[in-house]
Design a protein around this nucleic acid. Structure first.
Length: 715
DNA sequence: GCTGATTGTCTTTTT
DNA sequence: GACAATCAGC
């Protein structure tokens, strides 16, 4: 214990050992925020003798939860399991599972993810005859969330709707609420809103939870929204210790309701409040920090704070301007190759981007050049179709809800088409039944009825047999006997083979869960999964990590590439439409991105036409906000007058494009590749060659030094 | 009812 | 360049 305190600097030590009841830590990027938080919790246990059970730590993501638990376990192995570490949504579930009965609602609710929400909205469109092109899912998800947060019920939403367009949305909202009730499914917003309602209407329940958690810690406090703050406030009494940690410069979730003023005004709600500012950075070189500082300085609405470090000066930030998207990706791949050759490991490198779609050109090149990578985001593990299908089968053994039923009723094909499904749904809704219950009464064709009855019997069988099986066996039985596995196995589609692999991972996952929680059942597993979007893989593999800036929050890497730094992309046009507020959030996002880097930071962008913004791409304004002293500009340049690209472009030194042609290969050479088969070299650019392979591989650009590539001797 | 082809639309970020 | 809705043909 003493040695963990000895490693702290003066400010950190103050933050960890303070006696104040209300504490606000303003912790800059890389200032040892997580370390302070975990050391504080251990300090409470070891020095103050606090029962770990009374300590609550609220984190922002499941990833952060695991990280914190890991660190606490390392220091106090026997106590760590008793500290409650949880995302705020999981905390809501925990509270509601125990006490939602006090609101007159049963405890067996299911949790809807966004996919489930969309399924209901899709139903509503069908019922109300609306066009999903005119009413996009994103629009309705926003609308529904806003109304919920405003505590508007259906009729109230209808009253406030002025135009026919708004009224249609209000009708979808009403449908959504009705369906939620029928399905007894809560969405993410409900988890917080119902908890708040529960605490407000039942003081004795509130008091119970207040007694339970006497030391409350909140991480990433700058990204908290009003409802979450209310929930936290309701958990506190005049005796509660409240400890919040955050960095206003890293607020990047205002689009989701995060309110930057909560951390700024915290001291008004909780007085007297001690504030500790941690502005010594332990992560990055001075060069990287200076670059990041020079950008964030342009934000007007902020608490001024400049990070400093005793780490070395480091090298200048590199800005590479590529002539095209592909060459931008190529630059990244090439630099990764060079770093790797110098002994860097893939794990310590990351590529960050503003939006998921920007990963595509990178993936292509990484595959071609055999650079191992993992991608976070996009379609997450538990959101994959095959995983959702498998989980839906499992849900049928527990809740028989319509959303799951609709997913699996004709997968694999059982001859039950859209018409039968609609008829079944209509009949079920008209009679207040679930689709599962309505199966034998609804008006159906004999063929469909037969298929559905057989399926229902199967489900009932599984349900009974599952009582004596472990979780893993249940899953495997269902996958096998439903024919789902056979459906994929008989397919020749490469994607289906990948799906089988994913299902194997799910089996591993449920197996691991069963081992870790021997007394937990299917219900518990499904509940855990509902709040997780991704598998929490141990990152022991050797691969470059690709992710959005948002999901990189809290992480750090030796070498960071931030790609797609074009105006309109990053900062995104969508945000800039919100005026200064939007632009400042984008700037904070850039600040988060830049401060992930420990050793080297590369910023790249490309020219050409962007179909995202419908215009020619120009370098991001954030690039020009970096003081010239800290940045090295290479690649294609645009004259400062920003004239049109055709005459405004010129080539500066690039360090990579024009290189001596590879000595071994020349265009026209016949080659063979261990994976791709025979091919012909089309062009050579340095050590990379574009090679046309036989169908189905087609044209690829790969490293000509790659060991799997061989020259075919002329015959 | 199923399949494959075609058209049109939309691309921000997540628990 | 993905996804959903629609349509034609089996």
């Amino acid at each position: 214990m003493d040695e963990s305190l000895a490693k702290l600097n003066k400010d950190q030590l103050q933050a960890v050992t303070t006696k104040s009841q209300y504490v606000r830590i303003v912790a800059g990027a890389g200032s040892g925020k997580t370390r302070v938080l975990t050391t504080r919790i251990i300090f409470l246990i070891n020095q103050w003798g606090i029962d770990p059970h009374k300590i609550l730590a609220i984190t922002f993501t499941n990833k952060a939860t695991n990280e914190m638990r890991k660190r606490i376990t390392a220091m106090v192995p026997d106590q760590a399991g008793r500290v409650v570490i949880s995302t705020i949504h999981s905390l809501g579930v925990r509270i509601l599972r125990e006490d939602i009965g006090s609101l007159g609602m049963p405890r067996n609710f299911t949790i809807m993810d966004q996919e489930d929400q969309k399924a209901i909205i899709r139903e509503a469109y069908k019922q109300l005859d609306l066009d999903s092109k005119q009413y996009t899912f994103g629009m309705l998800l926003d609308y529904i969330g806003n109304n919920k947060y405003a505590q508007f019920d259906g009729p109230r939403a209808m009253e406030t709707a002025m135009s026919p367009f708004e009224k249609a949305k209000a009708r979808v909202y009403q449908y959504y609420l009705d369906r939620q009730k029928e399905l007894y499914a809560l969405d993410f917003d409900d988890l917080l809103l119902l908890t708040v309602r529960l605490f407000k209407s039942r003081p004795e329940i509130r008091a119970k939870w207040q007694r339970r958690f006497q030391f409350i810690h909140v991480d990433e406090f700058q990204d908290i929204d009003d409802t979450q703050y209310e929930m936290i406030k309701l958990l506190t009494t005049p005796d509660t210790y409240l400890y919040v940690v955050g960095d206003p410069d890293q607020t990047i979730y205002t689009w989701r309701g995060a309110n930057i003023n909560i951390i700024i005004n915290f001291e008004k709600d909780f007085t007297p409040c001690e504030t500790v500012v941690l502005d010594r950075n332990y992560r990055s070189t001075q060069m990287i920090l200076s670059a990041a500082n020079s950008v964030i300085r342009y934000n007007r609405n902020r608490l001024k704070k400049d990070l400093y470090t005793a780490n070395g000066e480091g090298t200048k930030v590199v800005h590479f301007a590529a002539p095209s998207e592909d060459s931008e990706a190529m630059f990244v791949a090439q630099r990764i190759g060079e770093l790797r050759a110098k002994g860097a490991s893939y794990n310590d490198m990351a590529v960050l981007y503003r939006s998921n779609y920007l990963s595509r050109p990178l993936e292509k090149i990484f595959i071609d050049m055999s650079i191992p990578y993992v991608i976070y985001g996009g379609i997450r593990f538990y959101e994959r179709a095959e995983i959702k299908d498998a989980l839906s089968y499992l849900r049928m053994l527990v809740t028989q809800d319509d959303l799951s039923y609709k997913r699996i009723i004709n997968v694999p094909k059982r001859g039950v088409g859209t018409k039968s499904i609609d008829d079944l749904l209509d009949y079920a809704r008209a009679n207040g039944l679930s689709m599962y219950q309505a199966a034998d009464k609804a008006p159906l064709t004999p063929k469909a009825r037969k298929a559905i009855t057989a399926l229902n019997q199967q489900i009932e069988q599984w349900r009974l047999r599952s009582q004596d099986m472990d979780l893993e066996t249940v899953l495997q039985t269902v996958l096998k006997e439903s024919g789902y596995k056979a459906m994929l196995e008989s397919s020749t589609d490469a994607f289906d083979q990948e799906r089988l692999e994913n299902l194997k991972e799910l089996v591993d996952d449920i197996h691991g869960f069963g081992q870790a929680n021997p007394e937990a059942g299917l219900t518990e597993y499904l509940q855990m999964v509902a709040l997780y979007t991704d598998l929490q893989n141990e990152d022991d593999g050797q691969h470059v990590q690709l992710m959005t800036v948002h999901s990189a929050k809290g992480l750090e890497f030796d070498d960071v590439f931030v790609v797609g730094l074009s105006d309109g992309v990053f900062p995104s046009d969508k945000s800039m439409n919100d005026g200064l507020k939007g632009l400042e959030e984008e700037r904070r996002l850039a600040y988060v991105a830049f401060t992930r880097a420990k050793q080297r930071l590369y910023l790249t962008e490309s020219r050409g036409y962007s179909f995202a913004t419908n215009s020619s791409k120009m370098p991001s304004r954030f690039l020009s906000e970096i003081d010239a002293d800290f940045i090295d500009n290479i690649g294609v340049a645009v004259r400062p007058d920003h004239e049109g690209l055709a005459d405004g472009t010129e080539l500066m030194h690039t360090g990579f494009i024009p290189k001596a042609p590879n000595a071994k290969y020349k265009p026209g050479d016949q080659v063979t590749h261990d994976d791709f088969g025979d091919g012909v070299v089309i062009s050579v650019n340095g050590n990379f060659g574009t090679i046309a392979f036989a169908y189905p591989v087609r044209t690829k650009t790969i490293s000509l030094n790659f060991p799997k590539l061989h020259k075919k001797e002329a015959s």
